[in-house]
């Protein structure tokens, strides 16, 4: 077990300690050790953005992060976006309403990246939204409905 380490960090507001291989990625730890399968993968090489989670509030590719890089950090996955209860986050609501979800495979990563954007810039323009999401590929929507959803959520959250 010499290549095993204890990874400890917060996930969605709960502190976790997991015995993992030192070379396993945060993506693998979330999905396989913690059962948080809402985080997706499209390449595991840092190319597609599907595995995006928030690390201390910033979007990061979980397929490129090793346990020691997230030691003591706060991680938010899609399972932690809505908060408790049945209420959706305004971004989630907007994604549902505008048809920003087709196959839904890119959706968790888009939502988390958009959340980080709105925290930094509460009323982004279309170009700013496009730039923020440009590292997250989507093959279904042509990004149009996703951009509309982020705009809609921003307007509602501002109000």
């Amino acid at each position: 077990m010499s290549d095993s380490v204890i990874a400890s960090f917060d996930v969605n507001g709960r502190s976790r300690e997991v015995l993992v291989k030192s070379y396993h990625t945060l993506l693998e730890i979330l999905r396989e050790d913690l059962g948080l399968t809402g985080t997706k993968h499209g390449c595991e090489l840092g190319e597609c953005g599907a595995c995006t989670v928030l690390v201390d509030g910033l979007p990061q590719l979980s397929c490129l992060l090793l346990p020691h890089q997230v030691e003591g950090k706060e991680i938010t996955t899609i399972e932690g976006l809505a908060g408790s209860g049945d209420e959706l986050h305004p971004l989630q609501e907007a994604f549902v309403e505008t048809g920003a979800v087709q196959c839904g495979y890119c959706t968790p990563s888009m939502l988390l990246t958009a959340k980080a954007l709105l925290e930094e810039n509460p009323s982004p323009g279309r170009q700013e939204i496009a730039e923020a999401l440009s590292g997250n590929l989507c093959r279904c929507t042509g990004y149009e409905a996703i951009t509309r959803a982020v705009e809609l959520a921003a307007t509602r959250m501002e109000a």
Binding site: T37, G38, K40, I78, E79, G99, V101
Partner: peptide, 19 residues
Amino acid sequence: LAKVDARAKVTGSTLYADD
């Protein structure tokens, strides 16, 4: 109207094959 499976997809609870 909203798609019938959209809510599960925005909350990350949809189970795809690799899940």
